[in-house]
Amino acid sequence: MEKLSYKTFGEESSLNDDLGSMGILSDNACRFGALQEYIEHRLYGESIPEALKDGNLRGYCSSAQALPDYAEVLLHIKKKYPADSAPVVVFGGSYGGLRKVLAAWFRLKYPHIAPGALASSAPLQYDRPPRYPVDPVCKGIDSAPEGSDVLDKIFSGIVAYFREKPCYNLNAFFSAETVDGWTWRTCSELVMPIGRGNNDNMFLGF
């Protein structure tokens, strides 16, 4: 039987931002004898510098364009090794793993390439303490002074992660290409509701 293959779908940043942070892949690849593959999303990274600032190219950065890219790469790899019947598990963080986008959409659109593939999003991206935000932010919120209101607790979480500064520009946390790409994507093809539901939770009613 051919071995398992892990594929990571790049998202709204250079692939260099992801390498070394996807511990779930490297932790399990040896156990299953799996081949790990990291595929950068079109127009991010160093292949076409400044592409996302070019209005004539930006439209080619869509998820509808990216999915066939991934399919072509995976088919090429399966043919090269050869590994036609090797099971494939796809992973993605942020936009790369969002429900109905990229990793999740890919397993529905291309089941013949990645049969039974899985997609993962937030836990893969954010819940990897102590480097990633969830652990220090939650500790900061929990350590807010007694009697703090919601905004004060949120601010305590921001200070815990970014350290105390006279001014906080959250865009500084991301590369320029990530900000440019995400701004275009959320204005053109992705609906990203932010807020809270009627029951004082994170789930909005539709």
Rank of each mutant, 00 (worst) to 15 (best):
M22K: 15
G197T: 02
P82Y: 01
K109W: 01
L52M: 09
G205Y: 00
G197D: 01
I158R: 12
K53V: 02
S148Q: 06
L74C: 14
L102R: 07
F203G: 06
I48E: 04
D69Y: 02
G157E: 12
A83W: 02
S120P: 03
I158E: 10
H112I: 04
E72P: 00
K109F: 03
R58M: 15
L190W: 13
F203H: 03
S148A: 14
S26H: 12
V137R: 04
G45I: 09
E2L: 03
M1A: 11
Y132I: 02
Y126I: 09
F106H: 03
E2H: 03
A103C: 11
A122E: 01
L43A: 09
G97W: 02
I158L: 14
F106T: 04
F206C: 07
N171A: 13
W105P: 02
D200C: 00
C30W: 08
E46L: 08
D18C: 13
S156M: 08
A144I: 05
R31I: 06
A71M: 06
V73N: 00
A172C: 09
A114F: 09
P136Y: 06
F32T: 11
Q36P: 13
N56F: 03
V137C: 14
I141F: 12
G55V: 06
L124G: 09
P136D: 10
R196C: 11
I48W: 01
E2F: 00
P129H: 00
P87T: 03
K3E: 13
M192G: 03
Y70K: 11
E164M: 07
D17T: 15
D27T: 12
I113C: 00
H112P: 01
S62I: 05
V137G: 05
V137T: 13
R99L: 15
K79T: 07
N201G: 00
G59W: 05
F106P: 05
F155M: 15
L57D: 05
K3G: 06
V179M: 05
K78T: 08
A66F: 13
E164Y: 07
L4K: 07
A86E: 08
E146I: 10
Y6C: 10
G147H: 02
L25M: 15
H76T: 00
L75I: 05
G20E: 01
H76R: 03
G97S: 13
S94C: 14
C61D: 03
L4E: 11
R196L: 13
Q125H: 12
I39M: 13
K139P: 09
Y70E: 08
I113L: 02
K109N: 07
A122F: 06
K139Y: 07
V90T: 13
P130C: 02
N28Q: 13
G23A: 13
G96E: 02
G181F: 04
Y81D: 03
G33W: 08
P49G: 08
E189D: 13
C138I: 08
V101N: 05
H76W: 00
A51M: 07
Y161A: 13
A176E: 15
P87K: 06
K80S: 03
L74Y: 01
Y6T: 08
L35D: 14
H112K: 11
S120A: 14
M22W: 00
G147L: 04
S156V: 10
L190P: 01
L52H: 08
A51H: 07
G116S: 06
V89A: 11
P129T: 09
N171W: 02
R58G: 06
R99I: 15
S143H: 10
